[in-house]
Structure formats: C-alpha cells, structure tokens
Amino acid sequence: MVQSASAIDLYMLVFGGALALALLVAGVVGFLFLYQKRVSEQELVVREMQLGLQQQVVYRTLDAVEDERKRVARDLHDEIGAALSAMRLLVTQLAQHTPPTPEAANLTTRFKDVIDNTIDSIRRISNDLLPQGLEELGLTYALEGLCEAAMALSDVDIELRVDTEPALSNRRGLLVYRLVQELLNNALKHAAASEIKLSLHHEAQQVRLHYADNGQGFDFEQAYQRRSFGLKNIETRAQMLEGTVAFDTQPAQGLRVTLSIPLTA
C-alpha cells in the first residue's frame, strides 16, 4: 500500500511536472507573439508620426512660400511700382519744361509707354504673387478677378457662383484661391475646355467647391501613379485645409472636382 501510494505520488509529480513544463514553453511562445505584436504596433505609430512630421514640413514650407510671395508682392507694389509712377511723372514734367521737338516728343511718348508697360507687368506679377483684394475684400472678389484674368487670356467661358462669402480665415481663403488657380491653369494648359463652371456654397458645417469643365479629361489612375504635380498640389492643399477632394474624370469626358472644407477645423 505504501509503495503504491508513493508510485501514485511519483506519477502525479511527473505528470504535473510535464504539464508545468508544457505551460512554460507555451508561455514563452506566447511572450514571443505578444512581443512581436507590440513591436509592429510601435513601428506603425512611429511611421504615422514620421508621416505627420513630413506633412507638417510640407505645410510649413508652403506657408513660408506664401509669406515670401506676400512680402515680394508688397515690395514690388510699394517700392518698384511707386518708383515707376514717380519716373512717369518726372518724364511728363520734363516734356512740359523743354520745347517739344518732334524727336523729343516721340522719345517721351515711347519712354512713357515703356514705363506704363513695366507698371502693368509689376501689377500683374504682384497680383499673381498675392491675389488682389483677397485679404481686403474677400475670397469671392479674388476669385472673380482670377476668372476674369483667365477669360482674358483664352476663349474659355467661366461661370462662377458663390451663394455667400465663405467664412474662412485669410490663410484658408488663400489656399482655396491657389487651388482654384491650379485648376484653371490646368484647364487652360491641358484641357482645351470651352466652358468651366465653378461654384462655392455652404452645406451644414462645411464649404463645398465644385469645379467642372468640358475639356478632354484624362486617365486619373495613370496621372495619379505618375505622381502628377498638379494633382499632388491640389491634394496637398486640400489636406492643409483638413478637407477632402474628389476627382471625377475620364478621357474625353471633362473633369469634375469636388472639394469639401470643414468650417470647424
């Protein structure tokens, strides 16, 4: 009896030991799986942070570019523009003080023309750098100017509809302006469109921009894979607005773009 009791003890201990060892091995394997899972999660977090940081760098760079453009536009207008206006005045005064020989009158006229053309160029460059009236009179006014300038350069008919002035900050208004500028530039350069429809309206807590043209369209997938600079520009600006952009186009079917900008961001 004593022997069988000790045999039972022995078998129980051996069985218990084997079970414990098996549990231990399972524990180590479980530890390995858990560790790898945590490492993968951490890598994902780090990658997202790096992506966010890269995005911030791009946004800061674009903001810095816009600030620099603003500065250059103001300097052009305030300094160069003012100097040219003063030159024109001086040339006019010079013509009034000296006897007007035909050659002198001709030269004076030509001199004034050159100055006028230079003033126009400065105004155009300054306007391209900093949209005229955007900060003072709002986005609608600036977009109207943009559309008029585009129509003056080509045979395209642009229809702009804005229900109410969008409640956007100067920075966000400028981003929307640049986005529309990019769309119009692409339409004039590549689309060969004759009609463009632009609309800007409020919907709940967001502003919606709709763009549509009757141009030649393009293969969106191909252009996206080729990392088309224009598309990337539009996407980046939409992201900076914390909005979303959707493209709808096929070859020979024009282009439709919808941009949704949250007002609460």
Partner: peptide, 13 residues
Amino acid sequence: LLYFASNIFFFML
C-alpha cells in the same frame, strides 16, 4: 527560466 522552473519539480521529485 526553463532550467530553474524544472528544478523545482526535480527537487520535489
């Protein structure tokens, strides 16, 4: 861990 965990059972055994 493997060695010392098994050790407990050996000394009990």
